[in-house]
Every structure is written in structure tokens, then in C-alpha cells.
């Protein structure tokens, strides 16, 4: 069984001038049970719409999306948004933000505390949990939103451009954390990013998307046992692989008008 299975999905959306635009036509994407897939594509090709459909907040017009054989929205999915400022709850402390998904369910306080302790044991959180999100750096805030996604034991993870609102040092820090988390989790994950470096560090397979109507034009496997995955940007193997991808990207760029 596929972890995430997007089958023959067709989706039209309304643009701001009232016209409807075809974004996906018979789009397919399969993610293995514990695979991390990176998505790379031009602006406006519907990457976020794809994630929204998998999360179940947007319905496809045709086709089917299954997560471990079930329709989206039934089981908990971690969705990390690009805009951490507007996805965290600024009126809650860091701790309450992380525990928010659990507080929605009828869960005993003791069980919630156990979950938190368990998370604190496994992930080494380098800041005070009683602070408010706005008192932390951007990278730390995004890290909180990842932890918030993970606390409810999700069956899949969707990550939408987690680094693009961060400065360089913050995104480097978060990239390392993210690689750690994704390595330790064994759930299917889709990560959308604008920067190949970020995908190279975190994903096992990168899918290149075309312009609308969107399809996967190229796939690139990143050998996950390789030292490349250790997130060293100066690693020679990493450099080679990136060069190869950059070449492909610029060639595709001409063909698809990405440049």
C-alpha cells in the first residue's frame, strides 16, 4: 500500500478575475510508506493546492486521494505552513501551542503531559517552553509548528515551503532539525521547497513539476544511505548531485519557461 496515493486528480480553481483555471489534469503522485518526497516547481503551479487536497481542506474535482487507503481528514496529518507567524497561536505559550492539537480532543491531562515529556526527551528543544512564539526567532517558531504537527502522532506529514520565510542562518538551523526529524520518523512526507539545497538535505526523492496543468516532469532519487543526507553542504557527493539537478533544472527551465 502507498503511504500517500494521489490518483488521476483533476482540479480547477477560480482565479481572482473570476475565470476558472485548470491546475491539475490526471495528476498522479505516489509516496511510499516512510518516504520523504520533495516537490520542486514553478510559482503558481499548484503545489500548495496539492498539499491542501491531501490534507483534506480542498476537494479534488475528479480522482482520488488516499492516505494509507483512507480518505483525507479521517486521521491526523501534520501540516506545516510556510507562514509560521500566522499559523501559530500568538496568544498561547510555546507549550500550549505544541499541545493545541491534543487539547482539542478529550484527553486526560496526565496523558497529555506524558506525550509532552516523551517529545521533550526525544527532541532537544533549545528554548523556554513558557515563552510566547513572538519572543523566538523565525526558525524556532517554525520548529514549534513542526513539533505541534508531530504531537498528535500523524500518519503523514505535509510541509509547505518551511524555509522560505526564514533568513539564511535560521533556515540552516531548521534544515538540520528537519532532516533529523524526518530521518527519525517513519511516515510518508511531502515537502515543498523553492531551494534545491533544502530538498537535497531532507528528501529522498525530488519531483519536478511543470507549469499548469501540472504534472511531474522529472524525478530524481537521492540515495538516502549516502553521506549526502547528512546535510553537509560542502560534501563532495552532495555537490555532484546538486550540480546534476541544477543542470536538469536549467534545461527544463528552457523547455517549460521556468527561467
Amino acid at each position: 500500500m502507498w503511504g500517500i496515493d494521489v490518483k488521476n486528480v483533476t482540479k480547477k480553481v477560480k482565479t481572482s478575475d473570476g475565470k476558472s483555471e485548470l491546475i491539475f489534469e490526471n495528476f498522479n503522485l505516489q509516496v511510499k510508506e516512510s518516504e520523504v518526497v520533495g516537490i520542486f516547481g514553478p510559482n503558481g503551479c499548484g503545489k500548495t493546492t496539492l498539499l491542501n487536497m491531501i490534507a483534506g481542506i480542498v476537494k479534488p474535482d475528479l480522482g482520488e486521494i488516499l492516505i494509507f487507503g483512507e480518505k483525507p481528514g479521517r486521521k491526523s496529518i501534520a501540516y506545516i505552513f510556510q507562514d509560521y507567524r500566522n499559523s501559530l497561536f500568538p496568544w498561547l505559550t510555546v507549550k500550549d501551542n505544541i499541545l493545541f492539537p491534543l487539547s482539542l480532543k478529550k484527553m486526560k491531562r496526565k496523558a497529555i503531559q506524558e506525550k509532552l515529556d516523551c517529545m521533550l526527551d526525544t527532541s532537544n528543544i533549545p528554548f523556554d517552553l513558557d515563552k510566547y512564539p513572538y519572543q523566538l526567532s523565525g526558525g524556532q517558531q517554525q520548529y514549534i509548528s513542526i513539533l505541534r504537527g508531530l504531537i498528535s502522532d500523524p500518519i503523514a506529514m505535509l510541509i509547505d515551503e518551511p524555509f522560505s520565510a526564514l533568513d539564511y542562518s535560521n533556515s540552516l538551523w531548521l534544515m538540520e532539525k528537519m532532516a533529523e526529524i524526518l530521518k527519525s520518523m517513519s511516515i510518508p512526507a511531502i515537502i515543498v521547497a523553492h531551494d534545491l539545497d533544502h530538498l537535497m538535505c531532507t528528501a529522498e526523492r525530488i519531483c519536478f513539476l511543470s507549469e499548469k496543468p501540472t504534472s511531474v516532469v522529472l524525478e530524481k532519487l537521492i540515495d538516502s544511505d549516502n553521506p549526502k543526507r547528512q546535510c553537509r553542504l560542502d560534501n563532495s557527493l552532495f555537490k555532484e548531485a546538486k550540480q546534476e539537478l541544477t543542470n536538469l533544472y536549467s534545461r527544463k527551465g528552457l523547455a517549460y519557461g521556468w527561467g
Binding site: 490534507a55 483534506g56 481542506i57 491526523s76 496529518i77 501540516y79 505552513f81 507562514d83 500566522n86 499559523s87 497561536f89 496568544w91 493545541f100 492539537p101 482539542l104 480532543k105 498528535s152
Partner: peptide
């Protein structure tokens, strides 16, 4: 107010009442 927080709460499985009392009002 940003719709993202409401969406985030929806994905986490918040009910109509929870979205209202714990996100929208704040």
C-alpha cells in the same frame, strides 16, 4: 484575521465550536 490559523485548527480536527472559541475570538 488570517484564515490560515482557522485552516490549521481545522486540519488538527477542531470542531466548529472550538475554532470559534479558541481561534476566531482571539
Amino acid at each position: 484575521s488570517p484564515k490560515l490559523r482557522v485552516n490549521a485548527a481545522k486540519i488538527m480536527g477542531a470542531s466548529w465550536y472550538q475554532i470559534f472559541s479558541r481561534v476566531v475570538i482571539f
